[in-house]
């Protein structure tokens, strides 16, 4: 994936992983599979298959398309950027 081309550094990616697994409420990994984060949720699309770009993840987090909740009011911009870069960087990589 080229999602991290925006210049995400290691700290940002680590923050993204934290948000993905624990900070977000509900955590992304409860519903989504993402092998790199050892997340095995099955109710929502498998991110390793979907391989979204950072922009697509950011949009989805802000909007909450379909049955997905919006995180616009519960995560900071920094957290949303971090999880978007993290997912884009690792999805489908394993």
């Amino acid at each position: 994936s080229t999602g991290a081309a925006g210049g995400a550094d290691e700290a940002m990616l680590e923050l993204g992983r934290q948000v993905f697994l624990t900070t977000a409420e509900p955590p992304c990994g409860v519903c989504h599979t993402l092998a790199n984060a050892e997340a095995t949720g099955t109710i929502a699309p498998n991110l390793d298959t979907m391989r979204p770009t950072a922009e697509e993840v950011r949009n989805a987090l802000m909007e909450g398309p379909g049955a997905m909740p919006s995180y616009a009011d519960t995560l900071s911009d920094e957290e949303i950027d971090a999880v978007a870069e993290h997912v884009a960087a690792v999805a489908g990589a394993e």
Partner: peptide, 8 residues
């Protein structure tokens, strides 16, 4: 772990 109303 998810509030039902959020994703049902």
């Amino acid at each position: 772990e998810v509030n039902r109303d959020e994703i049902v």
